[in-house]
């Protein structure tokens, strides 16, 4: 039996707001509601990185939230995909080059699916997730690592210690 088939059928979501204006967040919430009802596709909002397959990020990644984002990302088990929801999440959008903003999620972690729009509509979000699922089906179990704020990844024998994968959430960034 090919287990990869089932990745598509039960994607569980973790949502993180990395400095968004809430516009996309409430649309993600709307996706869960009866009108769009994503649970019919097996999608559950877990709110817990360890049990999530898809990371839905909104917001341009403010400096305060970037290491939190990376931390959450590294706590997700592979295979995993990241969906950037909203224009500012894709590129920084209107917040691009503001002094406290990181200009898009893909500066920090690998993004698999981009959903443009300000705010992204529920239909778009669902489509973005569906696109991400296509990618998820073909991913391997290799550890995916953030581009920035990377901590060391220890290996002893066959055992991988991924506790330090994200750089420390330190007082300087607060």
């Amino acid at each position: 039996m090919r287990l990869e088939r089932f990745r598509k059928k039960s994607p569980w979501i973790l949502h993180y707001n990395a400095g968004s204006c809430n516009g996309c967040d409430i649309e993600i919430l709307a996706c869960l509601a009866p009108r769009y009802d994503v649970e019919r596709l097996g999608i559950l909002n877990r709110g817990n990185p360890k049990q999530a397959d898809i990371l839905l990020v909104t917001g341009p990644v403010t400096h305060r939230s970037r290491d939190r984002l990376v931390e959450l990302y590294t706590q997700m088990a592979e295979p995993k995909v990241v969906v950037a929801v909203g224009s500012c999440t894709c590129s920084g959008g209107i917040f691009r080059h503001m002094y406290h903003v990181g200009d898009g999620v893909d500066q920090f972690i690998p993004v698999d699916s981009y959903v443009a729009g300000c705010a992204a509509r529920p239909e778009q979000i669902i489509e973005g997730v569906a696109r991400a699922l296509e990618i998820l089906e073909h991913k391997s179990h290799e550890i995916e690592r953030p581009f920035q704020l990377r901590g060391p990844l220890y290996c002893s024998g066959e055992q991988t210690i991924r506790r330090q994968m994200a750089a420390k959430v330190s007082d300087e960034t607060n």
Binding site: T160, R162, R163
Partner: peptide
């Protein structure tokens, strides 16, 4: 468990 990742 040898082949299992450790996580925080």
């Amino acid at each position: 468990m040898r082949r299992v990742d450790r996580v925080r």
